[in-house]
Design a protein around this nucleic acid. Sequence first.
DNA 1: GATGAATGAGACTTCATTCAT
DNA 2: AATGAATGAAGTCTCATTCAT
Lengths: 212, 212, 212, 212
Amino acid sequence: MLSTPPERTERTPPTSGLDYDVGSSKAAARIRDAACEVFAAKGYGAATTREIAAELGMSPGAVYPHYKTKEALLFAIAIEGHRNVLDVISAARDGAATPTEQLRATTIAFVRWHADRRAIARVIQHELRSLSDDHFALVADVRRATTAVFDDILAAGVAAGAFAPDDAPTATLALTSLGIDVTRWFPTKQHSDADALAQQYADIVLRIAGAR
Amino acid sequence: MLSTPPERTERTPPTSGLDYDVGSSKAAARIRDAACEVFAAKGYGAATTREIAAELGMSPGAVYPHYKTKEALLFAIAIEGHRNVLDVISAARDGAATPTEQLRATTIAFVRWHADRRAIARVIQHELRSLSDDHFALVADVRRATTAVFDDILAAGVAAGAFAPDDAPTATLALTSLGIDVTRWFPTKQHSDADALAQQYADIVLRIAGAR
Amino acid sequence: MLSTPPERTERTPPTSGLDYDVGSSKAAARIRDAACEVFAAKGYGAATTREIAAELGMSPGAVYPHYKTKEALLFAIAIEGHRNVLDVISAARDGAATPTEQLRATTIAFVRWHADRRAIARVIQHELRSLSDDHFALVADVRRATTAVFDDILAAGVAAGAFAPDDAPTATLALTSLGIDVTRWFPTKQHSDADALAQQYADIVLRIAGAR
Amino acid sequence: MLSTPPERTERTPPTSGLDYDVGSSKAAARIRDAACEVFAAKGYGAATTREIAAELGMSPGAVYPHYKTKEALLFAIAIEGHRNVLDVISAARDGAATPTEQLRATTIAFVRWHADRRAIARVIQHELRSLSDDHFALVADVRRATTAVFDDILAAGVAAGAFAPDDAPTATLALTSLGIDVTRWFPTKQHSDADALAQQYADIVLRIAGAR
DNA sequence: GATGAATGAGACTTCATTCAT
DNA sequence: AATGAATGAAGTCTCATTCAT
């Protein structure tokens, strides 16, 4: 290929949350990162576009060639974050052989992601109510795919006799909930090592699953 | 006494979060409730005092005789909510004899509180960053007392040989985290019965604790 | 009547342009007048709410308790202006006996209104494209009623043998057009006396009508 | 000639409105046309350079090599439009022999121009207030020349005993006013044929002039 | 000449809060 | 206590224009 065509926000028609151009220019990415920090720190509603621009040394209007509205920024962040989570846990699953190993690996990946990438994690777990209905639906697609990964591992483990949860869907709920809530409190004096936390939480999750 | 003097926020000097006048007049309580709904629905930052007043059929200025600022309202809600949680789980603990029964009872109470009183739960679990430092400190007092209840039960159970968690503080963290995160998602199609959910979560928590 | 209830903008449901509460408080009227001047001087699109407020020594936000949007202000002005024109020419017609006298009297009233009340005249004749569709429709109701007054007088004159226009509807068009265009140019060095102009234009209109 | 040097606005020093380079490149002409449409549709104040560029499939900056400012564009349009009117009615006059025929011919040309070239007509009749003082003065030169054409015809007709207006300058005013106002309303359901309208208006104008 | 990101100003509007009534 | 107009600050977003590419 001789030249890459310039990328534009919103070029792809909004049909699936799994592929969607989120703004691939360098400037767009910087804006997304800055917005992420501010949204995480104050909440979407209290965050201001001025502050996002200021964080980058830009003027308030400079965001708008890249993202048409504040909500479009939130959406870009949300979609990217959700896809990243899905990629990370899918990779973790694919690197493990048995359901037990898969459950451990995916839990570790999930918890670590929420501990390491706190800003984006907070945004995608707590600011989705500010999305438009259409954008929310696209994000929900990706969320469902993520949940399905855990559901499938648990089901496989149950079928193989490796797991014995009281109720499998509730186990999925509990384990994702544990991981998600990490964004609210991590780090504390007691838990500031993401790796260690992920290991401990994986043990807890195996208990919840009733792993032998 | 012929008339009760009007109640004001900030009358009590802010020394302990455990006793604090939060606005005891009927109007103050109505305002608190309305604010709670709005804060929960949109987040503190995006909520407007006008909307709170409108919800009550009041004019925008009518909130101010009762609460001097929007933040004072948040604080009143936060303190009241935290004290209520503490009361509820303390009562649950006092009604049970063994650590195992206590852990089950307090977990059920904790989960139910977050499922039943969703609006206030959401506010006290996700909007505290908007408190002033002083107010936050007062709220943190009560939070610590709540955590201590679970810590003590787990410690007693371990001492009695009833529990065998991998790590007791992490078990407390996980169980409170599970309860708190209920405010984010409850209800769903799968879980819309707070009672049933509380029972299932109690079973999970006993697994986490390694109850015999 | 013991007390007048407070008036609100937009209270009346928007069903007919002929009755419509346009903001009857004193402050609303002052804002309308100031807006009128600014809209006339710069055009609606180039006029700023800041400038309107500044003209009254108010802060920019002070307009909004009275008019929810800049367009609402334009609508209030437009409706009021159109109703005023209709009232003025209706009164002129009612004060005259024969079609000839009526045509002279209404023309004089129409021309004088556009010359005397230049600011509002300019707004209602040249800024209507900025109205919302709904608001435009309400204004159009009143415009039609105004045109009908002239149409009826001409028809009556023709029936009575007093007028002999080439084409009656075109005569109405021409005479209203002459009056309306006064807002564009009046005053000039040559024509700065509204009364004199109105008399001269009435003579011209009688020629157009082919009055005997 | 190998290459034409690029044309620039403002090359000619602004001394007379009657000769003035208005941007003679093809691109400049296309921009002028697009701007004309947008200015006519929304008013100069509400029109945006972006929209003008978009109408041509150009980027926002692409206008500036051709016209240094938005106001320069307005001026180019205004001058060109005024000169075109003058040319058109001068030609009409020159093609007719008697004052009566001349008055009829120029009126028809004037009315038709305003009906046919509605966009530019609207701009030159209603957006001049947005010109700089210098530019306005240049435009005014051309306007005066146009008025003089009608004044001269009327004067000649009066001298020849062909016309008997109440007041000749007022007749000029009325007839130009009728023509100009066509830009505001044409077309309507009743009048959508520019030719027919021009004929009817010419008859009216002859009545105003008191033509025998 | 054209592009499109960026600027600096400023647009409309909303908001927490105050205060005369 | 309540009202609601008013304030001053600020919010999101747009605009004419510039400039590196």
